[in-house]
């Protein structure tokens, strides 16, 4: 598979402050890359440089094998973006906004394309409503519809489902997956919703202070964390359980009859055997395996403490 986007040693400095430091990554055709990081990590700066609305201090960007600076017009015809942090012309109706951007991107068959996207993002009933009268969720859907107008080969999404109702967010994710599967659309995604990133992304890059601190598939990143959480509801023997857990060196939190124990995934069986040997009877048990969020929190936390 060819690289749709190739970023090499991308650097952005504001005076003495380095917002993005020597960033290199690529996105292949049909791939979904998640860009994660705490506030101020450099995600938005990176996206702005990739969209050509901010100049980098160093490094190179290639889209579809072509230099971005030299072929911006041609490249921008094939990419698009949506961000929860931008706006659209305030007094325009939904239909006028889509019509304007369809003209700007020279979308062939624009009436048909607009109709399809309006249906896809459930905007039909809002078509004559002004942008300023839309709810934040409706605005997000309109921004996404705008982002898909020009049949983009690569789409940059900054918090695409922020402020959406859960059911609409699910539909948006389904639409994104469908576009990716049917048309090989590549996606660069930033999100604070870790389950969304886990569900959508083939690869994840974690940024902190403008640098890449981790990159892999969401599964592989999660696997690097061995801490699981075991939650036990012990009503009858809770005092016995408390004494037993205090004797062990396992970190735990007690909320009345509920015990939340942080434990290495490989030691869960051993814990359960010990509980049985102590004749402690539990009423409920749940085991939570580590996920991307755990990895993210631990990685960022460690960075912060270092």
């Amino acid at each position: 598979m060819d690289n749709v986007l190739e970023v090499k040693n991308l650097t952005k400095k504001f005076g003495k402050f380095t917002a993005v430091n020597n960033l290199s990554f690529n996105i292949k055709e049909g791939e979904v890359l998640g860009l994660l990081g705490p506030n101020g990590a450099g995600k938005t700066t990176t996206i702005q440089i990739l969209l050509g609305i901010m100049n980098s201090t160093g490094g190179s960007i290639q889209y579809f094998g072509k230099d971005f600076n030299k072929n911006k017009e041609e490249i921008m015809k094939n990419i698009n973006f949506s961000s929860a942090y931008i706006s659209l012309p305030w007094w325009f109706t939904v239909s006028e906004i889509l019509e304007f951007f369809a003209r700007l991107y020279e979308v062939p068959d624009r009436k048909k394309r607009i109709k399809k996207l309006v249906e896809e993002f459930e905007l039909s009933s809002l078509i004559h409503r002004e942008y300023n009268k839309l709810s934040s969720g409706e605005r997000t859907r309109l921004l996404l519809a705008k982002a898909f107008l020009n049949y983009p080969k690569l789409i940059l999404l900054d918090e695409p489902t922020a402020s959406l109702d859960v059911d609409i967010a699910v539909k948006v994710r389904e639409f994104l997956k469908k576009e990716q599967k049917n048309y090989g659309v590549s996606i660069l995604l930033t999100s604070h919703n870790m389950s969304e990133v886990e569900e959508m992304c083939d690869k994840v890059i974690i940024l902190n202070k403008g640098e890449i601190i981790a990159r892999d598939t969401p599964e592989n990143l999660s696997k690097t964390i061995s801490d699981s959480k075991v939650e036990l509801l012990i009503k009858k023997d809770y005092k016995k359980a408390l004494t037993f857990l205090k004797k062990t060196d396992m970190p735990f939190v007690q909320e009345k009859f509920r015990f939340k124990i942080k434990i290495d995934e490989h030691k869960i069986a051993e814990l359960l055997i010990l509980i049985a040997q102590e004749k402690i009877e539990y009423d409920e048990i749940s085991i939570e395996k580590p996920d991307l969020e755990d990895f993210f929190l631990q990685t960022i936390g460690r960075q912060k403490h270092d």
């Binding site: 050509g52 609305i53 015809k77 706006s87 951007f101 700007l104 705008k146």
Partner: peptide, 9 residues
């Protein structure tokens, strides 16, 4: 809307 128009062709 500056970003929308200048992050286009």
């Amino acid at each position: 809307n500056l970003v929308n128009i200048f992050a286009s062709p």
